[in-house]
């Protein structure tokens, strides 16, 4: 199937700014799904609020565009009711880890078979460039005119600590790796998190003098390195990418099936 067959052309043009990384992520989500050969009817995409969350409307799946931060809670209801469906959640950094942080760690703790794609542009784009819990110390934003004094989360470490059984990181520069990781995350039976560093030239880039979209994407090439590489040992400030954890563990819906077996036995 061609990439365009996954898109709802009726709903275009999209609302993303020129140079935004989210279109690159959408493209590679489609490529991953196309590669896996999953039927469009078997995919439910649930999102919250923000620039990244608008992906759901543009894609020809069962799509649920919900309220800010709560996509994983809605998705939990969908997945428990129809465990055979693939449930994928595109989410922004603020949506996933500020207002939605509690739902994020609890979905990870349950290890429910949902794929969370965290599109991390380190800023609230839709509201015009306020700092997010992933902006980090010393960052400029419209609500941090004297620079941010908030520290940021490490999405990978947080996800692993909370109990996610598949955790990976990639960037909008590394598109082949992105499509491959997304495909593996969807295949994984358990809660999977893929952090994708995605550029926001309009707000984060401009406020922090990081140049245009091309320069920002290029910075992902320069500032990241494969997990466990020699370069990381030599330069600890490099950000690692790749798959950090991939473990088979008891999955929530499968475990609930056992509860049903126990309950129906007790009934007889």
């Amino acid at each position: 199937m061609a990439v365009k067959d996954f898109i709802r052309e009726r709903f275009f043009p999209h609302l993303w700014c020129p140079g935004c990384g989210h279109g690159i992520v959408m493209n590679n989500m489609i490529r991953a799904i196309e590669k896996l050969g999953v039927s469009k009817n078997d995919i439910v995409m649930v999102s919250g609020i923000g620039c990244s969350s608008r992906i759901t409307g543009y894609l020809d799946f069962h799509t649920l565009h919900t309220i800010h931060g709560r996509a994983l809670a809605f998705a939990t209801g969908v997945k428990m009711s129809r465990p055979e469906l693939n449930v994928i959640i595109p989410m922004g950094d603020g949506d996933a880890l500020s207002i939605g942080g509690n739902h994020f760690i609890h979905a990870a703790r349950r290890n429910i078979d949902i794929t969370a794609i965290v599109m991390n542009n380190r800023i609230y784009g839709m509201t015009g460039g306020q700092y997010s819990p992933l902006s980090g110390f010393g960052i400029n934003a419209t609500t941090a005119p004297y620079t941010s004094i908030d520290n940021d989360f490490d999405v990978v470490k947080l996800s692993i600590a909370a109990g996610a059984s598949f955790v990976a990181r990639t960037t909008t520069y590394h598109v082949k790796q992105m499509a491959d990781i997304i495909a593996q995350a969807i295949l994984h039976k358990g809660f999977s998190v893929v952090e994708i560093m995605s550029q926001c030239p309009t707000y984060f880039g401009r406020k922090n003098k990081q140049g245009n979209a091309v320069e920002m994407i290029n910075s992902y090439r320069i500032n990241t390195t494969p997990k466990g590489s020699k370069a990381k040992k030599e330069n600890p400030s490099l950000i690692e990418r790749g798959i950090f954890i991939q473990e088979e563990r008891a999955e929530y819906c499968k475990e609930y099936d056992k509860i049903i077996q126990r309950a129906t036995k007790g009934n007889k």
């Binding site: 649930v46 809670a73 969908v78």
Partner: peptide, 17 residues
């Protein structure tokens, strides 16, 4: 669920199926 917000969201998701 982890709180009442999530509870209400989860039932809406389930209802849609």
């Amino acid at each position: 669920m982890e709180d009442e917000i999530a509870s209400m969201c989860a039932i809406i998701g389930a209802s849609l199926t």
